[in-house]
Nucleic acid binder design. Structure first.
Length: 508
RNA sequence: GGCCCCGUAGCUCAGCAGGAUAGAGCGAUCGCCUCCUAAGCGAUAGGCCACUGGUUCGACUCCAGUCGGGGCCGCCA
């Protein structure tokens, strides 16, 4: 402050600080002390009573502590996962899922009105490939000798599904016209896989508010409308028999095809329609969570926004880097094409939902993540999930113990907070007071990992306090005040873990 | 060739409109259970924040370039 003013005031920062401090000191009651440090920093020391108010706030607000209003009720849509319904979710999708869900939660906490949406790519020719893959496996299982093409989906789940169809429908598809049969397999198989994805996500603690089918964009002529709208505004042209969108007008390095020379629309064309429709549904901000391998698509989507006459900032794209799956430090090789990959379900079954989600949120989303299955399972200090959850369980344990000793949690009006005189207690209280700001920061920057880091810091301070001091001591007022403090710690840990989609166990 | 991300302690990573001696976890070494869960705590060692310039009173943070690592660039989805 003083240093910022140094330039305009033409005075030494230190001198300005002196003047400011003299003024500030007139305010009685707030400050414990104010001092000048270094080149002109002004340090404020709030009176302990100011900090004690924080503990009361936490007690009074409970689950609502941390909820803010910066979102101002703005409507936000978070679209994430959106994996093609051609196979089960793999571990890479898991990170996008955990990130998208946590971003949605943290925005909600910050006062935005949030919708979670899954976009189903059920219109392209990959659905046809899916139908054909199942159909061919089906034929094979019925004893037909045929070669399974390389461009078909190789995964075992295709064969499993074909077997299921045989159980339910027998051999009736063998007689049917091939195209008709494939269409059936495509539709029914896709829906079955989609349901499987939904089930896996629910096991992972994620529920979408809306599943949006790409096909419906075509059924409702929205793709056509989208292209027409762009054409009307002069952003398209024809070349080599194709229709192009001049995305270079808006900073893209290359124009993009909307309708191919064979008459088929591109995936990009449905994306135009899809995003156009999102804003028509009234969302102020739209967030897409993508795998980092799609980063090249950012400029063209921003171009869509610009062409629609919207601020490109209204579309936020979160790029999630891929996950390196390890076991005991050894990388686990995966290949989607060969159908050899570790599914999200397998990992959740093995390490549990909590560890899985926490691990995905331990790094900022745009940095690569090593996920060691053995580490995630470890119930030790090396595993940060247990570290944080353990802090919560410990408070619960203290509370059980207090109950046995007839020490009860004091009411907000009777608690004698002045007995909390220790430096660690003040420190803990300060950390608790930061939680709402952490939520705001995480929301405004779409960075849920900030919550994860905050939790680890809070847990560390609590564990340290626990090891130095006993909550239940001889003096009743002190015991009860400390109980009040650790209860606040428990509340904030619970609130933060909830945002991340991780449970807070009472006992471990 | 064009574009994007990354380069901070041995390892994995934080560092929030630029601010005071740069942080955490793991790993290493040494300690701590007659005591509310040792799934914990304390202490020690360990860093030209890749490099070079620029902006600034001040740069790990912003800008340009260099080097090193990774990724993306289809009338595929």
């Amino acid at each position: 402050m003083a240093m910022l003013m140094a330039r305009t005031e033409k005075k030494a920062p230190r001198q300005i600080a002196e003047i400011l401090v003299a003024q500030l000191r007139q305010q009685e009651g707030l400050w414990e002390n104010i001092e000048i440090a270094g080149p002109g920093f002004i340090n404020f020391f709030l009176k302990a009573t100011c900090w004690h108010d924080v503990l009361k706030q936490i007690s009074v607000q409970g689950k609502a502590f941390g909820k803010g209003t910066v979102g101002a009720g703005k409507r936000v849509q978070v679209e994430f996962v959106s994996a093609n319904p051609t196979g089960p979710l793999h571990i890479g999708h898991g990170r996008g899922a955990a990130t998208g869900d946590a971003v949605a939660s943290v925005l909600c906490e910050a006062g935005f009105e949030v919708q979670r949406e899954y976009y189903i790519n059920d219109a392209g020719n990959q659905m046809d490939t899916l139908g054909r893959s199942i159909y061919l496996r089906y034929c094979q299982l019925q004893g037909r000798d045929l070669e399974f093409p390389e461009d078909c989906y190789q995964g075992d789940y295709i064969r499993d599904y074909a077997r299921e169809v045989i159980d339910q429908h027998g051999s009736r598809f063998l007689e049917m016209d091939e195209a008709e049969a494939i269409a059936w397999f495509s539709r029914e198989g896709g829906e079955s896989i989609r349901q499987g994805i939904d089930t896996d996500l629910q096991q992972f603690g994620i529920r979408f508010d809306n599943w949006y089918s790409e096909q419906t964009l075509y059924d409702r002529d929205l793709v056509k409308d989208g292209i027409e709208a762009l054409t009307r505004d002069g952003y398209t042209y024809e070349q080599d028999g194709a229709i192009w969108f001049r995305t270079t007008d808006f900073g893209d390095d290359k124009d993009r095809v909307l309708i191919r020379s064979n008459g088929a629309t591109t995936y990009f064309a449905s994306d135009v329609a899809y995003h156009r429709e999102k804003y028509q549904r009234g969302f102020d901000i739209v967030i897409d969570v993508w795998g980092a391998d799609h980063h090249g698509y950012v400029p063209r989507m921003k171009a869509v926004l610009a062409a629609l006459g919207r601020n490109p900032e209204d579309l936020q794209i979160i790029l999630v880097q891929l996950v390196n799956l390890l076991r005991e430090g050894e990388q686990i090789a995966m290949s989607t094409r060969a159908g050899k990959f570790v599914t999200l379900k397998e990992v959740v079954d093995e390490v549990g939902k909590d560890a899985c989600r926490f691990f995905f949120l331990m790094r900022r989303s745009d940095s690569q993540l090593d996920f060691d299955l053995e580490l995630a399972k470890k119930q030790s200090t090396e595993n940060p999930v247990y570290y944080v959850q353990y802090a919560h369980a410990r408070v619960c344990s203290i509370q059980r113990n207090a109950a046995e000793s007839q020490v009860t949690l004091p009411g907000d009006d009777e608690v004698k907070l002045e007995t909390l005189t220790l430096a660690e207690e003040l420190q803990l209280t300060k950390t608790l007071s930061r939680y709402p700001e952490v939520v705001v920061g995480a929301a405004l920057n779409y960075e849920p990992h900030r919550i994860t880091f905050y939790l680890q810091e809070l847990a560390a301070q609590f564990h340290s306090y626990y090891n130095q001091q006993r909550v239940i001591v001889d003096d009743l007022d002190t015991s009860r005040a400390r109980l009040y403090l650790v209860n606040a710690v428990k509340q904030v840990i619970h609130n933060a873990l909830t945002v991340l989609g991780v449970s807070s166990p009472e006992k471990m």
